[in-house]
């Protein structure tokens, strides 16, 4: 799901940065409004490490393979920290492994970071309910993780389909993009289940981690 350098035109890359900047600014502003903005930095830092390394875990889904993203989990556990955490994780992935790219950092941050914030809002709806049973936490975690990948794939799909260069065989490239998008459907379920399980685990072991965001 990481778009590398040289795939998108310069205007789209610039638009990606232009879109990522205000989201980063808003996230940092919301973090600064908290009583102790530094309190959750250790949690954010560790989950950034997880996000950074998890892209190496590939799940073979013939004819292609997909890798874990964990943006839903970051949204659920980190709240507004999720967007800057994903931005930093993507930066390291691009610089160290050319996974993604520096020109497409803004676009990739939007593709993976925005859904993380959406999954945070979804998980926060749990607070409306008075009783927070493990089942409810699990269900909200599942929906958050499921939706995060779903929205990411949708953004990825739209950005790529609208930017197929004329020199390529458009029909072939379009088919390849659809195939890759379809391969992410099982990943939605996998990440949903994983996010749900982690949310339930955290509620049992350390519920304040989930309630603090």
């Amino acid at each position: 799901m990481h778009i590398p350098d040289g795939i998108l035109p310069a205007t789209v890359c610039a638009a990606g940065y232009a879109a990522a900047a205000p989201v980063t600014w808003y996230s940092v502003r919301r973090i600064n409004q908290r009583e102790n903005p530094r309190a959750d930095i250790p949690k954010a830092s560790l989950l950034t490490a997880a996000f950074f390394v998890v892209s190496w875990i590939h799940i073979p889904l013939p004819p292609t393979s997909v890798h874990l993203v964990l943006n839903g989990l970051l949204g659920v556990v980190l709240g507004y920290f999720a967007f800057p955490a994903i931005l930093i994780g993507l930066f390291f992935q691009a610089v160290m492994f050319q996974h993604g790219g520096l020109t497409t950092l803004g676009v990739n941050a939007i593709i993976m970071g925005l859904p993380a914030l959406v999954s945070y809002y979804i998980f926060r709806m749990r607070n409306i309910l008075e009783k927070k049973s493990q089942l409810i936490t699990g269900v909200f975690g599942f929906v958050a993780g499921f939706a995060a990948i779903g929205i990411s794939v949708a953004l990825f799909l739209v950005i790529l389909l609208t930017n197929i260069p004329a020199e390529l065989d458009v029909a072939t490239e379009r088919t390849a993009i659809y195939t890759l998008a379809l391969a992410h459907l099982p990943l939605m379920v996998i990440e949903g289940v994983f996010t749900g399980l982690v949310a339930v685990f955290l509620q049992r072991v350390r519920p304040q981690l989930l309630d603090s965001i």
């Binding site: 930095i41 250790p42 830092s45 950074f52 390394v53 390291f92 160290m96 492994f97």
Partner: peptide, 26 residues
């Protein structure tokens, strides 16, 4: 591309950076 050893070493360096940051702030 990189060899597996390079990837593991590079990943570990970056992870240690994040863990160090977490330890510093905690």
């Amino acid at each position: 591309g990189f060899s597996v050893l390079q990837i593991v070493l590079m990943s570990m360096c970056v992870i240690w950076g994040f863990v160090g940051t977490a330890l510093y702030f905690s």
